[in-house]
């Protein structure tokens, strides 16, 4: 990458400061601005900002300026997927893979597109191929977690996230994924710890802040009565409650069974009504700052 302006923009992008990178790119000389690298950096900055339509436009301009490029195709594929345009995503990713069949990012992105289309078998094969090439790459950990999540294997997703954190203890993404997968299993303390560490490692990413707010909400004292539902899942909690209610009846304690049944019903009402209120209240409180 030539030119001091481009280098500065690249450094800003790597420091997760996409807005400033875009500002830097806007000041490039006409010649530098037509450099394929400039289009790539613009597209990558828009991608970090979750501005998907702009990502596609900038990346396509880059393809026109510099010819086919796997990294640009990956940016287009991811952005199209995020907009729900899975067919366009697949087209871009396959164009990239025809240039570079072993490109790790493209393999992972194509796997993600297949997951979004609910083609989990094919997604698994693509993940396998990526993992065979670079078993300890961060992108590979992330996509394996995503695959386990999509399959509904929450425990496995959390295990992979633990491996990811062990391999990359400094990575904000790894901590965020461990937080998210722990939250899916109802382990509120681990979830909160993961989210906090992610924010500490990289305070600039909005998704981590959002996750941290969610895990904080889950630890709110008013949420304590709801925890068994989240922790053990509705099926186990339910079986336990029904067993207790009818067990007490069989032990000839109908009064106690009645009290327990009413308490159980109230807890169910509580678990439906209170969490949305706590969430709304806490979000308003934090948005105020």
């Amino acid at each position: 990458m030539s030119g001091i302006g481009l280098k500065r923009a690249q450094a800003l992008l790597m420091a997760d400061r996409p807005q400033e990178a875009l500002r830097e790119l806007a000041t490039l000389s006409a010649e530098e601005a037509m450099h394929p690298g400039a289009f790539y950096l613009r597209a990558a900055a828009f991608s970090q900002l979750d501005q998907h339509a702009e990502t596609v436009t900038a990346a396509r301009q880059g393809l026109e300026a510099g010819g086919p490029d796997p990294d640009l195709f990956q940016l287009i594929g991811d952005a199209e997927r995020q907009q729900g345009h899975l067919e366009a995503a697949e087209q871009a990713l396959l164009s990239g893979l025809s240039l570079a069949p072993n490109h790790l990012g493209l393999l992972c992105s194509y796997a993600a597109a297949c997951m979004a289309a609910n083609q989990l078998g094919k997604a698994a094969k693509l993940v396998e191929r990526a993992a065979a090439q670079a078993p300890t790459a961060a992108a590979v950990y992330a996509i394996r977690i995503q695959l386990a999540y999509t399959r509904g294997e929450d425990r496995k997703a959390q295990e992979i996230a633990r491996e990811f954190v062990a391999e990359y203890p400094e990575s904000a993404a790894a901590h965020a994924l461990l937080g998210g997968t722990s939250a899916n299993r109802g382990q509120v303390r681990e979830a909160d710890a993961g989210a906090r560490q992610a924010v500490a490692a990289d305070p600039t990413v909005g998704d981590y802040a959002e996750l941290a707010l969610e895990t904080r909400i889950a630890r709110h004292p008013l949420m304590t009565p709801v925890r068994p539902f989240i922790r053990f899942g509705p099926i186990k909690t339910w079986i336990a409650a029904i067993a207790i209610i009818y067990g007490l009846r069989m032990l000839k304690m109908p009064m106690l069974a009645g009290v327990f049944a009413i308490g159980w019903f109230l807890l169910c009402v509580y678990s439906w009504v209170v969490p949305p209120l706590v969430r709304r209240w806490m979000k308003r409180r934090y948005r105020a700052f």
């Binding site: 729900g84 899975l86 067919e87 995503a89 697949e90 087209q91 396959l94 893979l97 025809s98 069949p101 597109a113 297949c114 979004a116 289309a117 609910n118 083609q119 094919k122 094969k125 693509l126 191929r129």
Partner: peptide, 18 residues
Amino acid sequence: MTDELFTPTIKDAKVPTR
């Protein structure tokens, strides 16, 4: 390219829009 993993399969897939 003869790789069967790289033949398009999503274009015929129906994806939720709502």
